[in-house]
């Protein structure tokens, strides 16, 4: 294979991992694990097939493994520079809010939403990368977007509607 191709995908893998995990160090760790696994499994990659989709599905599987493991919550040591932000103050606040709101989505909804928004994958590509049926992609996308909208607008989520009086 053209090995420069993997390098070319790294910025996108990092962007997605950062958006998915929020934490810079954790995201880069996930990218590193992805590359290491990709190297070990290079034989399984069929030349001519979509390298990006393959890498994203490796990353997804690693993430699923991570979520299955009971883990200690750790604080990154080297997070001096925070998430990228745009220049103006109000924009910055808005974007930080968005990041916090994304954190509140269930992991599986966030993954679908980010692959569509950041990677501009087709729904079928998302289904392949996450190894889920197309219908599941659509329902997660729809629910994730609505949930994010309600959070951003400061409105109560469906689950919180049963308010005790």
């Amino acid at each position: 294979m053209d090995s420069r191709a993997i390098r070319a995908e790294m910025p996108r893998l990092r962007r997605y991992a950062r958006a998915l995990l929020g934490d810079r160090a954790a995201a880069d760790d996930l990218v590193q694990d992805t590359l290491e696994r990709a190297w070990r499994r290079l034989a399984q990659w069929r030349a001519g097939s979509d390298l990006r989709a393959w890498l994203f599905s490796i990353m997804h599987n690693l993430r699923v493994d991570q979520l299955r493991q009971p883990s200690l919550s750790t604080q990154a040591l080297d997070d001096g520079d925070e998430a990228p932000t745009r220049p103006t103050q109000s924009d910055q606040l808005e974007l930080v809010d968005l990041e916090a709101a994304l954190r509140q989505l269930p992991d599986e909804q966030r993954a679908v939403l980010l692959l569509v928004a950041l990677e501009e994958m087709s729904y079928a590509e998302v289904a392949a990368a996450l190894e889920i049926p197309l219908g599941t992609v659509m329902s997660r996308l729809s629910r994730g977007r609505e949930r994010l909208r309600l959070i951003m607008e400061g409105r109560p989520l469906a689950a919180n509607l049963r308010v005790v009086r």
């Binding site: 910025p11 996108r12 990092r14 962007r15 950062r18 958006a19 998430a83 990228p84 932000t85 745009r86 808005e94 974007l95 968005l98 990041e99 994304l102 939403l113 980010l114 928004a117 950041l118």
Partner: peptide, 10 residues
């Protein structure tokens, strides 16, 4: 907004 937030990582 999601793109604006994370594109700088690229």
């Amino acid at each position: 907004a999601i793109k604006a937030l994370f594109d700088p990582v690229l």
